[in-house]
Design a protein around this nucleic acid. Structure first.
Lengths: 159, 159
DNA sequence: CCTTTCTTGACTATGAGAGTCGGGAATTGT
DNA sequence: ACAATTCCCGACTCTCATAGTCAAGAAAGG
């Protein structure tokens, strides 16, 4: 698998918050419903995101969650990193989960794994929440056909 | 995880066969030993590879396995596809293993997943066994420092 | 205080992946 | 023939990360 279900839920949840930004708080139940995520599970995920600082929360009646940074200042990479601790979405790259590469440095494959890891990370890093929202806009209006420039690399990463 | 342990073993086993090409048959036990793969497990993998046609086998004394295509005519993609049936290493891309995307076509994320899938597949397709063997050569002779051109895309894919 | 809603940690379940095992079928040598 | 070797095959077990649940509690507001 390329990415865990949980991480995907996290992306969807943040995406839902991004769409709702500026219109008050969003309850976990609503997020769960909108993005087809199990209710109790989305709470686990959201509280994890809250701890990262990208999301704020408020308890009690009228409470809920909100996205902190503007959608164009938040990347997919940011979210995935915050979900997976300091280790990247694919730590060793070559050696899968229980990383224990018997040929680590000298492995003939490691340049390839490195290239792949880099390629994935580049895409994660250059994809902002705003980009994703624009995808949806494109989907809604099916007349725009020029799909050539989809998600072109942007230079001004603020980090 | 990016790739299963089994698929990695398959790559390593084929790599070992590539290194030995032209020098007769290689026993499964030797492959297992050289690449630190459990003995019985490498047999499972090799017989799967044999069925794909990239590897031939011969039983009995003096038997073993050999790689059929020349190392420069066999890509990582070929091997992975033969291991994973017709479906690609990451079928749905977005939806992980038990693919069941609730938002399939209209998903705001699908362009990103497609880009990532494409990027990975490109690398798998352009990396031949010969490329991997040359990596090892580079590792063995540490004076060559120009790492810039590593794995440059090659045009003449014979497919 | 009563309802709502987030918070937390512990808990259980599931399934893909990893690896094993026993016995059988070629092939070769003596 | 017989024995040694080596691949072949299907069924089997085991483990562990992931997925998802649950119960009780703490803030917030009315």
């Amino acid at each position: 698998m390329l990415i865990t279900q949980k991480n995907q839920y996290a992306l969807r949840a943040v995406y839902e918050l991004a769409r709702h930004r500026g219109r008050g708080l969003l309850k976990s139940a609503d997020i769960a419903h909108a993005q087809a995520i199990p209710r109790r599970f989305v709470e686990v995920i959201l509280s994890q995101l809250t701890r990262s600082g990208y999301v704020t929360s408020k308890r009690g009646q009228g409470g809920g969650y909100a996205l902190v940074p503007p959608p164009d200042g938040l990347t997919v990479a940011d979210i995935l990193h915050s979900m997976n601790g300091s280790r990247r979405p694919f730590h060793c790259i070559a050696c899968v989960s229980r990383c224990r590469c018997d040929f680590d440095d000298g492995c003939a494959f490691s340049p390839m794994w490195a290239r792949i890891g880099q390629a994935i990370d580049d895409i994660y890093r250059e994809t902002t929440l705003l980009d994703l929202m624009e995808n949806e806009t494109d989907l809604a209006s099916p007349e725009a056909e020029s799909a050539g420039g989809q998600g072109a690399a942007r230079e001004d990463m603020s980090r």
